[in-house]
Design a protein around this nucleic acid. Structure first.
Length: 693
DNA sequence: TTAGGGTTAG
């Protein structure tokens, strides 16, 4: 026979997860006079927390006169899972001083998860020291929470030491360490550990795949997912699906994304809200905004992320009216917008020139919703003002806002000065920015571009010199396209040998046809002091053109061409895409580093509200072979232009003799599937290595 | 009577 208190605890436990049931049970226990009778307070705190009623749990804790280790343990666990893990610190202080209780193994493991959430290695180490000196120092559950804590704080090696000290290791601690290596970018070790793990379950697969996606190894993550399916691992929950759908969004892998949509349907997870949200984002990032919308409309329960994902998607696709109409629906539906929603909304206004609406939203975010604007909001708003020609107002906002402007903020203002041909303001801001000696490499690219547009080649040289001195490198431009089951990656200036003939013939035909329609190359985005014909050649081989040409040659007639590019599209490519869509009667969608461009019948969805100098434009990558490199040294050719990531590829155009040979050699070498690295300063070539792509 | 691992938006 159970005691009345134990009966009450069992009843309380049974209510967990249902707010009404917990409250009812609390009332009943109060009536029976058992409210302060241990272990009821601890059980109620747990039940409240499991019903997502942390304030009620905290209130109950405050009301409880005699607090034992159980109620502390329950509350600390609740807080460690909540949105505010930092609340654990005062509770812990109270436990140690006011109630003079010693933390037991339950408390230590909960506190370890709090420090993991807070990413505080310093506090975590203190806790670890305390644990070692405590009577519980052999407890494996505490050890597994310490492994996780070290991994989340960026020290998987420390986690490994604790892991190795364990006598018996269960799947929880294996998973924690696999996840730790993977999410700290140590994929080799993660895989090795995973392969040696006994009894790999869905949790471990999910942890590994998630870690890889979070460190940018989406391709590897997808491969593992395929292996997992082949191994026949049962998918009992939606975690892994939403992660892999997210990976296909990152990769803009449309075919894969659609297959995953099918898998989600077959496995019965289509009604899962998180899977639905991931699908909306995937379709949007794969350039198919209409399918994104279809998934959105089919979702039964929508949270703020569902609404925001859709708003942001519409905004990035240049569909400002749809984004704003969604916002109205969202408010009517009673969903509360957050700071991300407003980023999307102001962005939408900015790219449609809706100054009044944007101003109103910026104010309502602060006044109606009490959201303090972040730098990102100021940048979006400033972008809106400056794009629409309110340059002085934008400059004033920049000086009065409570943040230091970053590269994106300067970029927004400088692009607008360029657009409105306010050279004086442009140079004034640039000179000021150069004086500040920015740390971010992209700021130097921005400055260089601005000076180049204004023909100030001496300042361009000065910026380039700064960059070389600081070993700042520019990211190389590339584009990719999905062709059947494979991806095809194109670098600027490099035409793969197997399709070279077809692509070159196609592009030359296009140029002839475009010229008939009045096309004149706009070389303003080639940021080097080159001859005009040389600049045109740079443009001709920009990576998105190669990718689009490849797509048009290889895809079935009438299908949509979807290309992804890592940098921004340049002015001339933008014009060319419009013309190609008109000439070939095909839809072309280009996702660049900031937004989507839908080209159809000679027009683009962005309505020309897109220009931005900040991300840097594409440059031709010069890759050279051994013979050319020694020629370069012998003839003392000098290199100019931006340099690419250290130790990988040095891109530049050449001056002096032999440019043509160099171009031939580089194209040849690239076509063989290799890459070459030239390392050295701008004025001297030091060494060369080469490798396979 | 209280503890440890994996999801979606900028």
């Amino acid at each position: 026979m159970l005691s009345p208190a134990a009966t009450a605890v069992a009843a309380v436990r049974a209510t967990a997860g249902s707010p009404a049931a917990v409250r009812g049970m609390h009332a009943r226990i109060l009536k029976e006079g058992l409210a302060h009778h241990p272990p009821n307070p601890a059980a109620l705190v747990s039940a409240y927390a499991k019903s997502r009623l942390l304030p009620d749990a905290l209130h109950l804790f405050d009301e409880t006169p005699r607090r034992d280790i159980y109620i502390y343990s329950s509350l600390l666990t609740a807080v460690s899972h909540s949105a505010s893990p930092e609340l654990a610190l005062p509770i812990l202080r109270c436990m140690l001083s006011a109630d003079a209780l010693h933390p037991d193994h339950f408390v230590i493991s909960s506190v370890a998860s709090v420090f993991a959430r807070l990413r505080s290695r310093r506090l975590g180490r203190q806790l670890h020291a305390h644990f070692v000196a405590s009577p519980y120092n052999g407890d494996d559950v505490v050890k597994s929470s310490l492994v996780d804590m070290y991994c989340k704080c960026g020290s998987p090696d420390d986690g490994r030491k604790v892991f190795d000290s364990m006598s018996a290791k269960n799947s929880v601690v294996w998973t924690a360490l696999v996840s730790g290596y993977a999410s700290n970018g140590r994929s080799e070790e993660a895989l090795q550990l995973f392969r040696s793990m006994p009894g790999r379950n869905l949790f471990a697969w999910t942890a590994l795949i998630s870690g890889l996606v979070n460190t940018g190894e989406s391709v590897g993550a997808v491969e593992l997912f395929v292996e997992m399916r082949r191994d026949g691992v049962r998918i009992d929950d939606a975690f892994v699906l939403s992660i892999v759908i997210g990976a296909s969004a990152d990769l803009a892998a449309f075919v894969l994304g659609r297959q995953l949509h099918g898998s989600a349907m077959r496995l019965g997870f289509l009604s899962n809200m998180i899977v639905g949200n991931a699908l909306i984002d995937m379709y949007s990032k794969c350039s198919d905004i209409l399918s994104a919308r279809e998934v959105f409309e089919g979702i039964t329960f929508r949270d703020v992320i569902s609404w925001t994902t859709m708003v942001v998607g519409e905004a990035q696709h240049g569909r400002a009216e749809e984004a704003l109409a969604l916002y109205d629906r969202m408010v009517l539906a009673g969903a509360k917008p957050n700071e991300v929603t407003f980023v999307g909304l102001i962005y939408a206004c900015s790219h449609a020139g809706l100054v009044q609406k944007g101003r109103q939203l910026f104010e309502s975010m602060k006044n109606e919703y009490g959201i303090t604007p972040r730098l990102q909001h100021y940048t979006c708003y400033l972008d809106l003002l400056s794009r629409s020609g309110h340059l002085l107002e934008a400059e004033e906002l920049m000086t009065t806002m409570p943040y230091e402007p970053d590269e994106a903020t300067w970029g927004a203002l400088l692009s607008a000065c360029t657009k409105y041909k306010d050279a004086e303001m442009c140079i004034r801001i640039s000179d000021k920015l150069l004086e500040l000696r920015p740390k971010d490499s992209s700021t130097y690219i921005l400055l260089s571009n601005v000076y180049a547009v204004n023909g100030k080649w001496d300042s361009v040289a000065k910026v380039r010199k700064c960059m070389i001195g600081l070993e700042i490198r520019k990211e190389p431009g590339y584009s990719w396209i999905e062709a059947g089951r494979e991806f095809r990656l194109f670098h600027a200036g490099e035409v793969p040998l197997d399709v070279r003939e077809e692509i070159m013939v196609f592009l030359e035909e296009m140029v002839l046809e475009m010229r008939k329609r009045g096309y004149v190359p706009d070389t303003s985005s080639v940021m080097h002091d080159l001859e005009e014909s040389e600049k045109e050649h740079h443009l001709f081989l920009h990576s998105e053109r190669l990718a689009v040409a490849f797509g048009l040659i290889k895809s079935p007639p009438g299908s949509v061409i979807r290309v992804v590019k890592n940098l921004r599209v340049c002015v001339d490519c933008h014009t060319v895409m419009k013309l190609i869509s008109e000439i070939t009667h095909r839809k072309i969608v280009v996702r660049d580093s900031s937004r989507f461009h839908h080209f159809e019948g000679g027009k683009c969805s962005c309505s020309e509200f897109w220009e931005d100098l900040s991300s840097g434009r594409e440059d031709i990558l010069w890759v050279v072979d051994d013979r050319t490199a020694s020629n370069m040294q012998r003839n003392k050719w000098t290199m100019r232009g931006p340099m690419i990531r250290e130790g990988q590829t040095t891109a530049a155009h050449m001056t002096g003799k032999g440019r043509t040979q160099l171009r031939e050699a580089s194209t040849h070498w690239a076509a063989c599937g290799g890459w070459a690295v030239v390392s050295g300063r701008a004025d001297e070539i030091c060494s060369l290595t080469k490798g396979k792509r």
